[in-house]
């Protein structure tokens, strides 16, 4: 294949990936639509004594989303049938996510091969977004296996569809070479680590968001019996999942923002820390996530406060990604990313 072929292939792969993400999203929607017709098993445990609930919550985390993949002794075969259909749609959704993620990866790789000379596929906003969404997708799939996060699928796939769509429609630029400041293998390491960490933080932010929403609904007593919220894992599980995902992302972010980034800056600009807006916001994001971990470890500040801090952290991450390039323009040395 020639360079131009690769570039064209990349565009097609991204398009197909988007379409498959849409299909995955629809499957997850179906999963929940079918589930709505079945009483959630959680509603049973919600009335159980506290100690038992903790136990259920803890096992639910290991064995799958509450009531979704563990039909807890349905009382008749119709219910069992329903649960099977729920399970089926969920699995189709996951399979489609894996397929879309593979296509996404192909799109990313061929984007790099489609530039002359061949380079890493993250040199402008279009490519950063492509790589960032890929990070979210991969991290979701990996973490899903580990922490049983299928209940998040509908939100993650929906998020990916919207962001990829915007990326292709608004940010697209044809493949081209890098500006000289970006010729460094530290850039490869820096961005790769930032993408992985951002992916984890995105998943963590979703878990924290769901925690807050469910917490509010629980407090107000507006939790509908078989709605999405009541089928989500217990609050304690949501909180714990959010913590684990953030704990996974934080050291990687530390490495990306405070090791790889400064080393690259040292080579490119002659000073490892320049208080450039992009650096400042990477630092701010880091400090907020450190505060999150502190809040999570402080008795009484777990839960709602910690979840709120996690969301603030993610907002600052997003702002750094999007806002700096748009609002600060030439004020940031990193702004060539926005050309």
């Amino acid at each position: 294949m020639t360079t131009a072929d690769f570039a064209a292939f990349s565009n097609h792969a991204v398009m197909f990936a988007s379409i498959v993400y849409v299909l995955a999203f629809l499957s997850f929607v179906m999963e929940w639509a079918v589930a709505r017709k079945t009483p959630a098993t959680v509603s049973v445990t919600a009335t159980a004594p506290a100690a038992e609930r903790e136990l259920v919550a803890a096992t639910a985390e290991l064995s799958g989303g509450e009531g979704v993949s563990t039909p807890a002794a349905p009382d008749n075969s119709a219910d069992q049938d329903h649960e099977l259909r729920v399970e089926k749609w969920g699995r189709i959704g996951v399979a489609l996510m894996v397929l879309a993620c593979g296509l996404h990866f192909l799109g990313l790789v061929t984007r790099g091969l489609g530039a002359d000379p061949v380079r890493v596929p993250w040199g402008n906003m279009y490519e950063f977004t492509l790589a960032g969404t890929f990070g979210v997708s991969v991290m979701f799939l990996l973490l899903m296996r580990r922490y049983e996060l299928r209940w998040m699928g509908v939100l993650v796939s929906g998020f990916l569809v919207v962001v990829l769509m915007l990326d292709v429609l608004v940010l697209y630029v044809p493949a081209g070479p890098l500006v000289p400041a970006l010729h460094s293998y530290w850039l490869v390491i820096h961005v790769a680590a930032a993408v992985v960490a951002s992916g984890a933080f995105a998943v963590g932010a979703l878990a924290s968001l769901l925690y807050l929403v469910k917490n509010r609904a629980t407090e107000r007593g507006t939790l509908r019996e078989n709605g999405y919220l009541s089928r989500l894992p217990e609050l304690t599980v949501l909180d714990r999942v959010a913590y684990r995902v953030h704990a996974f992302g934080f050291p990687i972010w530390t490495f990306a923002a405070l090791v790889a980034g400064p080393i690259w800056a040292e080579y490119a600009w002659g000073s490892y820390w320049n208080w450039d807006p992009k650096e400042v916001w990477a630092f701010i994001t880091w400090v907020i996530y450190a505060a999150y971990l502190h809040a999570r470890a402080t008795a009484g500040w777990k839960g709602r406060l910690a979840a709120t801090i996690a969301l603030i952290g993610f907002a600052s991450l997003l702002f750094n990604f999007v806002g700096i390039n748009y609002f600060f323009g030439g004020g940031s040395m990193h702004s060539y990313a926005g050309n």
Binding site: V280, F283, V287, W301, S316
Partner: peptide, 30 residues
Amino acid sequence: MRTALVLLFLLALAAVPGSVVPQRNIDAVK
């Protein structure tokens, strides 16, 4: 621990203006 948390937040907040207002040691012309 609570104070540490509040101070961490303050640090994050205090860093913000430097990314908005031009800084002398970064770009004196600006």
